[in-house]
């Protein structure tokens, strides 16, 4: 459903992506692994049109992704950004409703709110609190839930484990699996490679702007380029 071909991106003179090609198919969980500065966030930002590629193409469901970031979510692709980026001055409930901003089906929105509350009962309890008053883990739950509220066909997740205790990370990865089972394809970008490999079908290893290795979960787990990408051998 997502086809990226020879993608290049740069900030000023600094090249962040140097010809990345990858694919995500319906129903898949695909992980993109790499260490700091590998270009993972840049890749996701290109897909959601926040960063303009200098070369290459990105197709989603057979069409090029729209030029403006605000048109992207309407095509069924939602980006849950790095560092959660929740609306700190909005209540938890309003945060979720912004996720459904473009939708006009009150019944469906209500269903999805219930679904989110079932996945994360904590968010139901804190419905009327400011987003900024949630703990880090709760904020990550909120960011993912806000993405669910857009009813996406593909969800892009940028480092959902960032800065969270292992027990919360496990909980969040369980939920990601559930979201996928319910029919949403997932593209997850992580430094926490082993965690990401525990839920993905396939993975790509990104090393300073280039795909160094790709394969199924098992292939990547057995390969030594993984440790290379992380330990810099």
């Amino acid at each position: 459903m997502l086809k990226i071909n020879n993608l290049h991106a740069a900030y000023g003179g600094i090249k962040a992506l140097k010809g990345v090609s990858l694919e995500v198919n319906e129903g898949e969980v695909v992980a993109v692994l790499g260490s700091n500065g590998a270009g993972k966030s840049t890749l996701l930002n290109c897909i959601s049109s926040v960063v303009k590629p200098t070369e290459g193409s990105i197709e989603f469901l057979g069409n090029l992704v729209p030029k403006h970031d605000y048109d992207v979510v309407g095509t069924g692709l939602v980006h849950v950004p790095e560092g959660r980026q929740i609306f700190t001055h909005l209540t938890v409930r309003d945060n979720l409703l912004v996720g459904a901003y473009l939708r006009n089906d009150p019944k469906g929105i209500k269903e999805d709110l219930d679904r989110v509350h079932k996945l994360f009962p904590r968010l139901k309890e804190r419905e009327n609190q400011y987003g900024g008053h949630l703990s880090g883990g709760e904020q990550q739950m909120l960011a993912i839930s806000r993405g669910i509220m857009a009813r996406p066909k593909l969800m892009l997740l940028d480092e959902p484990s960032l800065g969270l205790a292992p027990i919360i990370v496990n909980q969040i990865f369980e939920i990601i699996k559930e979201i996928n089972k319910a029919g949403t394809a997932i593209m997850i970008v992580e430094q926490n490679a082993f965690k990401a490999l525990s839920i993905c079908d396939r993975a790509y290893i990104l090393n300073v702007g280039l795909i160094e290795k790709t394969g199924t979960r098992e292939e990547i787990l057995c390969d030594d380029s993984l440790s290379k990408a992380y330990l810099g051998e």
């Binding site: 959601s48 926040v50 970031d69 605000y70 048109d71 992207v72 979510v73 309407g74 939602v78 980006h79 950004p81 980026q85 929740i86 609306f87 700190t88 001055h89 909005l90 912004v98 996720g99 901003y101 473009l102 987003g131 806000r146 857009a150």
Partner: peptide
């Protein structure tokens, strides 16, 4: 509250 994320969500 957060201009960039509002854009990501379709505003």
């Amino acid at each position: 509250s957060n201009t960039a994320t509002a854009g990501l969500l379709g505003i």
